[in-house]
């Protein structure tokens, strides 16, 4: 099989350790001064692409981000991890999954990758939509929630984490893959690589040039979820069982 190109889609999100809060007036999420990072699933996507390249099965790994100017710092860390080059579609707009999928589809037509690897979900909006949407636009097969991936003879074999266990599927290339947590453990970035990453090509394009304006969900309100409150500390196992019986759950 000839080496393929791989496109990895990565999103800048609030770091997974941050407990997000609403703005006091409930008009949105308080993100000022909050630590940001790469969506963890997208780091896994890049790691997988790099491993494929290191096995000699891919010739180039391109990272694409749709997001604000500040996303450059996440892009630099992805380049430091080992991506060959990056495309930054800059916008301050809150793009919807459908719009992102359309942007990626433009890039797919330009790059002609053999694989596009995305996260199964972004941990901010938790939508889990862009991968299959892109696959639909492109008219190519998809393997979602993947925890193992091998390429052979113009096909990919993927193990998917589905509701009832592990499903193995085979898809023809080119294909869209979305990553689950157990696909791999992303490598740490080394200092010299951070320096080297500054030299790597980063292509910035304004989102507005893509001419995309698609229906998006309108967010009418942000609300705090109903809180669970701490209950009772019990002192012993027998008290626990008695209380569970009192509640009628045993």
């Amino acid at each position: 099989m000839n080496p393929i190109k791989i496109l990895v889609a990565a999103k800048r999100v609030v770091d997974y350790n941050v407990r997000v809060r609403l703005k006091p007036d409930h008009s949105g999420i308080a993100t000022d001064g909050v630590k940001m990072g790469v969506n963890p699933f997208d780091e896994i996507a890049l790691e997988e692409a790099l491993r494929i390249r290191e096995r000699g099965e891919a010739s180039e790994v391109v990272v694409a981000t749709v997001g604000p100017h500040e996303a450059e710092s996440q892009i630099r860390s992805l380049l430091a991890m080992g991506a060959d080059r990056a495309i930054h579609i800059e916008t301050t707009r809150e793009t919807g999954p459908l719009e992102v999928a359309h942007v990626l589809y433009h890039l797919v037509q330009e790059i002609e990758p053999g694989l596009v690897i995305l996260g199964k979900q972004a941990i901010d909006d938790d939508c889990g939509q862009v991968g299959p949407m892109l696959a639909a636009l492109w008219g190519r097969p998809q393997a979602t929630f993947v925890s193992k991936l091998t390429l052979e003879g113009g096909r990919a074999q993927a193990v998917r984490e589905v509701d009832h266990g592990l499903e193995t599927v085979e898809v023809d290339l080119p294909a869209v893959i979305t990553t689950d947590l157990r696909l791999n453990t992303p490598r740490f970035i080394k200092m010299p690589d951070i320096m080297k990453a500054r030299q790597k090509p980063l292509d910035r394009r304004p989102f507005e040039n893509c001419g995309i304006d698609l229906p998006r969900l309108e967010v009418e309100a942000y609300l705090p979820p109903p809180e669970r409150v701490a209950g009772l500390r019990v002192e012993s196992v027998s008290e626990l069982v008695t209380r569970l019986r009192d509640r009628g759950v045993l």
């Binding site: 459908l98 939509q129 998917r160 229906p215």
Partner: peptide
């Protein structure tokens, strides 16, 4: 919102050019 629905419906949304409300 099973693994079947989360795999398929976003793909249909892509085909129909419609946004999807997940979960």
């Amino acid at each position: 919102g099973t693994s079947f629905g989360r795999d398929l419906l976003p793909r249909l949304a892509g085909l129909l050019g419609a946004p999807l409300v997940s979960d």
